[in-house]
Design a protein around this nucleic acid. Structure first.
Lengths: 351, 351
DNA sequence: CTGTTAGCGCCTTCAA
DNA sequence: TTGAAGGCGCTAACAG
């Protein structure tokens, strides 16, 4: 146990202590399966490495090999359970591929290209962008060109959510899920709806709104009976939008919030306004956030398998690149719970 | 704009295009403020770098400098809002220091040393461990020695939660917070308690239990009147433990779950068992998870400023190392809400 | 099967 | 102020 008293243990130290060359030590410790090393030398190297607490310098490996095993992950906000679930999925899958995840919580979409530039310097094996897509074309173009730079530098790239760029994408069925939800709600007897639609520019929110409208139209519920109110994509956004609606001209018997946290905010607003739940107003959300499965009344929503989404994105970037963008759809599934009770015929409230 | 058609742009490419040496280019792009470069050369280098989409190869920089600006972060489970909030705080603070966060979601505490070994290879600037500490001494020792290896390799190290190793630590006031909570509950008129105590081996859970007992003792509520039931530290753990208690011999009028997600599970179990809330049973939690602020009845709990905790840990590792371990306490604050109504004198239920 | 050696891209003395 | 050159730790030819 001839530990160097300080500083870093290098491969050369291990080789010396084992009485072999650095090449042999390298082959034993980090070699690709192809090269064989005699058993006794292998043992000596392993023993030396253990005794010295050797750990390979990954920056050096990265330089020699030209690439790291880092997977960069951009999320909009890691404190948001939607994104932390996706991140968990990415990490779980990355582990099986011996990849490590470097995560950035970007906060604002307009900062994403900057983070990508930083990430580019890491020479990552791959990059996954799970931020929010918006209608801002200029921003989308900047994002696209930054992603192209990354691809040219040899990184694999994947997007999560909308397929708005010619890049591998994990597509969430926002539209289809909302459509199915709308139909279920109509089947339950609801006729007059209010949609807490989130921000106008957010594609995810828009898709869910559009899908919901389509579902209503499917069953002949005209758009004139549906109110739409925009607001933040957050709990407080749901609360405030709902409150505004309540103090103005709410004519609905069923509220669809385009995500669960907004729905929870809306429920609080309804309660604060004295509306009994679930009887006084039906409420539905989207995402099926695990942490929110115990709210009362239990929330009707559209389940998105978020961990699977993250894992799917990682599998995408681990597969060899293909000539044209691949799409991986993940199914959305309606989950009816207590917050949207069935109505007898023609009980649709008129507010 | 003489872009190379493929491969990676290096500093040499930039230097050539700008008509300067690599040294000059380096000084312009990544130089330490000391070195001055003539204005016109500076401009040419900058222009070339922009034209070529140059981004410094950080592994190479790391090798030349001997260290990266990576901050490694170990959390127990990133999908858990407790840890994702901490992670958000770390990242927010890291950004201000131009550090980047490499995160690992470890799952099981016994895997933490392995992750640390991997991290060690990254030659990180610092490492923050926010996993769960347990009573397992062997494991703690392994963790400690792995952290020492990291320190010897030049990394700064900090722990979040208990101060069980001679290392910089952000200390959460688990014990004190639970103690204050117990006193408040007694002041509200509660006398008979059940504690959903989480796993026996988890220090955080133990501290909260111990603090709670101490608080009761402070006000003369003897331990004989307090039931303790152990279980998982999760929502389902709370549900199952509560259910067991209900079907066996619950003698309490107030349940303290040692974290919020368990409390939410307990609330569901109570509801499923037909206990009216908040009247039929008081429930309190710990953490004040933001996502759970809208459960009904709104949950009495102990607020821990989790993002601040993360940020504090990062500040700790960014400060120059000191000769002896530093402690940074974060305050816990009791938040009384609807789930623990005040009782008139002697209304304590006997179950 | 093992050892020798030339880079990987960058930073940083050291000279000029 | 600028340029030339060594070296960071490792991998991957290439010899032996």
């Amino acid at each position: 146990m001839t530990k160097r008293s300080s500083g870093t243990v290098t491969l050369m130290d291990v080789a010396r202590q084992a009485g072999v060359s650095v090449a042999t030590a390298s082959r034993v410790l980090n070699g690709n399966g192809a090269r064989q090393v005699r058993a006794d030398l292998t043992d000596r190297v392993l023993a030396a490495a253990a005794a010295l607490d050797y750990s390979a310098n990954t920056p050096a490996q990265a330089m020699a090999r030209g690439r790291t095993n880092v997977v960069g992950l951009l999320v909009h906000d890691i404190a948001d359970p939607f994104f932390s679930s996706i991140a968990a999925g990415v990490m779980r899958a990355a582990e099986q591929h011996r990849g490590i995840v470097m995560m950035y919580s970007t906060g604002r979409p307009e900062r994403e290209p900057d983070y990508l530039a930083t990430l580019c310097g890491q020479r990552p094996h791959a990059v996954i962008v799970a931020g929010s897509r918006t209608t801002d074309r200029a921003l989308r173009d900047r994002l696209g060109s930054q992603l192209r730079v990354l691809e040219e530098a040899g990184a694999r790239v994947a997007l999560i959510s909308q397929h708005v760029l010619p890049i591998d994408t994990v597509l969430m069925e926002n539209r289809e899920g909302a459509r199915l939800l709308a139909r279920r709600l109509v089947e339950l007897g609801h006729r007059r709806f209010a949609v807490l639609a989130g921000p106008r520019h957010l594609l995810t929110a828009r898709d869910r709104l559009a899908g919901f409208r389509a579902g209503l139209a499917d069953l002949g519920v005209g758009p004139s009976r549906t109110q739409v109110a925009y607001g933040e994509f957050t709990r407080d956004g749901g609360y405030l939008t709902m409150r505004d609606l309540l103090t103005r001209d709410l004519r609905a018997g069923c509220v669809f919030a385009v995500n669960d946290v907004m729905a929870v905010g809306a429920i609080s607003a309804l309660r604060d306004h004295g509306v009994p739940l679930p009887g006084g107003m039906a409420v539905a959300g989207f995402d099926d956030i695990a942490t929110l499965r115990d709210v009362t009344p239990s929330l009707t929503t559209v389940r998105l398998p978020l961990e699977e989404v993250g894992a799917a994105a990682l599998e995408l970037v681990m597969r060899p690149r293909s000539d044209r963008p691949r799409l991986r759809r993940v199914r959305a599934e309606v989950v009816v719970r207590d917050s949207t009770p069935a109505l007898g015929r023609d009980q649709g409230r008129a507010g």
